[in-house]
Amino acid sequence: MYSASDVSAASVAPPAPRRRALLVIGLVAFVAGAVVAPQLLDRHGVAILVSIFFWASFSSSWNIIGGYAGQFSLGHAAFFAVGAYASAWTYRYLGLSPLVGLALGVLVAGLAAAALGAIVFRYKLLGTYFAIGTLAFSEILRVTLGNVSWFGGSGGIPIPLAPEAPWTLLQFQPVGYYYLFLALTLAYMLLCWWIGRSRFGFQLAVVRDNEDVAETLGVRPESLKLRAFVLSAMTAAPVGTIYAQYVMFVEPQTFLSFSMVIQVVIPAVIGGLGTVFGPVLGAALLTLVIELTSELAVRPGFSLFAYGCALMVFPLLVPSGIWPLIRDFVARRGR
């Protein structure tokens, strides 16, 4: 019987005992390092770490629909915004804890994804059509949030500060958000790892690689893609809630901007689609590139130019992603 890992080249291969030990040690070192890191860096370093794990968790959630299920979704920012607006709105106007808002956001995002997914998958939107369809959804949401004053209109919803707030109000020093995003990232990595090894993941991989064949094997693509889409949306919402608390506002132009829509895809693709570590590595690289190029203020626009060039160069040099590269390298050395 095939296991998910044999069919799908993108998941973690069953390692030999020595490699497994190495992997575990590596993971423990990574987590330990991540926990300790903020103490070793200044504020700016912490801000960069927050950025890395924000993109890591956000992109990990996209990875579920984009990597494991192989559906190019450009609507992910919409579910992120749903999470952010749910918690901001209920806190500001109802005084509810953002934790309640987070749960609400997850619920609403899941329902929205179920509704949208039921329609688009039933109508068999694939490939670029699915991308444009999800992009349409995201754009419609952006315009609606901006023009309906009930949601705060274009000015959005400012989140009032509560000094001496209990932790349930999710208002912390920046390092607090770092740990939140870190926890979220680790949770999502675990989720992706489980998907890669499960029957669900195996079936998703078959659908991803060849949808017609999947049907003949008795797998139902619509239902699988829908589940992946809903899961992906539900994991995006908490990222939105925490980010809203980090910046203390929600606003349609920022949360549903073209950059938000596109940038969530980049870490997963650069790091390795459908892999557990891909989004994290991609997020680290993306953040570092953004920070480094922003130092190159030779002339207005030059940093952006350098960033654009970096985006062009990477897919050419590392086509399948960083993690597969590292994994293959380690595998070859191991022989």
Binding site: R43, H44, S51, V247, S294, A297, P300, S303, L304
Partner: peptide, 20 residues
């Protein structure tokens, strides 16, 4: 400090400024 008209950079640049 240039934030390139971007919210994310506005944050990290302000942190950097304070760190500096």
């Amino acid at each position: 400090y240039d934030n390139q008209s971007k919210v994310e950079l506005a944050q990290s640049m302000t942190e950097k400024a304070i760190a500096d």
